[in-house]
């Protein structure tokens, strides 16, 4: 029985019909176009001069591209009584402090849960897995009370502290350590007299860089988008995303400026993701959840 073999880039491909390949690529193209169009449209809108924003019907391209909307945006921002740089500083500070804390606490915890068989480690990990199954709104009600009682009303720590204990990054890192660091290697380091913290820092951590990067990117994405919060009342503590969203509330006249702000808010996470994509995918390879 001779089966017709199809090859793709000099490699034999099994069980692949040309029609199926075509259909899948077509589907992919259509879906990709649908996903991409809104983002494309926001970039186009941000580059349109005022008169083109009010063309009827709206155009999918821009005739005289201009950065006027971006200038307008910064103009609008500088009119607020808190300097614009303050919003940027706040967002950068919250993002940095939240990410750094989460990274340090999570990697310590993930390492211990994965490699130190202390009584109760299984229970702790189960709690973390279960926490992935509930949305933040469930804990949110009493979390609000706890943060208020801690005296963190009108403090950025009310946003930073809870992110230090976010569990997705910890979960991914623990699974990654399980799969990529052999216990024997750690044993030999311990036999050589290295303490647990030293083993953690100089043997284990260099090997989990992809997981580090994944955690950083995850945490960064969440915090970079921090908007209005019920905890923050003082204007000088508010974030960039909040300041940008104030432009939105002014309605259709500022469509160009809003599009410009969306582009700015989007461009930073996109760059971060592009740079770290291969490491993130590597981390995700071990993300599987056992029963």
């Amino acid at each position: 029985m001779s089966k017709k073999l199809r090859t793709r880039r000099h490699r034999v491909v099994l069980n692949r019909s040309a029609g199926g390949d075509f259909g899948i690529n077509l589907m992919l193209f259509i879906l990709g176009a649908i996903m991409f169009l809104p983002l494309y449209y926001v970039v186009i809108q941000s580059l349109k001069p005022l008169d083109e924003l009010f063309y009827y019907p709206p155009k999918f391209y821009v005739i005289n591209p201009t950065f006027q909307n971006f200038t307008d945006l910064f103009q609008l921002m500088s009119e607020s009584w808190v300097p614009f740089s303050r919003y940027i500083f706040n967002t950068v500070w919250i993002t940095f402090a939240g990410t750094a804390g989460n990274l340090i606490l999570s990697s310590l915890c993930a390492y211990a849960l994965s490699k130190i068989p202390f009584p109760g480690h299984g229970f702790f990990f189960q709690l973390i897995v279960k926490s992935l199954m509930i949305s933040s709104a469930v804990a949110g009600t009493l979390q609000f009370v706890i943060l208020t009682k801690m005296g963190l009303m009108d403090s950025q720590w009310a946003i930073i502290l809870p992110t230090w204990a976010s569990t997705l990054g910890l979960y991914l890192m623990k699974q990654f350590i399980d799969a990529n660091i052999s216990t024997e290697m750690l044993e030999s380091a311990r036999l050589d007299g290295a303490g647990e913290f030293r083993t953690f820092w100089s043997i284990a951590m260099p090997l989990v860089k992809p997981a580090w990067l994944t955690l950083i990117v995850q945490s960064f994405q969440g915090l970079w988008n921090t908007g209005a919060s019920i905890f923050i009342q003082s204007e000088e503590l508010k974030t960039l995303n909040y300041a940008m969203s104030q432009v939105l509330s002014a309605g259709i006249v500022r469509q160009g400026a809003v599009s410009a702000s969306t582009v700015i808010m989007l461009i930073v996470p996109v760059i971060v993701f592009v740079v770290s994509q291969s490491n993130i995918i590597e981390t995700m390879a071990t993300s599987g959840m056992k029963d």
Partner: peptide, 17 residues
């Protein structure tokens, strides 16, 4: 292609468009 499909979830403000 991953970037194209993943980009919309990168920032919560993108959907204001």
């Amino acid at each position: 292609v991953t970037l194209i499909f993943y980009a919309p979830s990168l920032t919560s403000s993108a959907y204001t468009i």
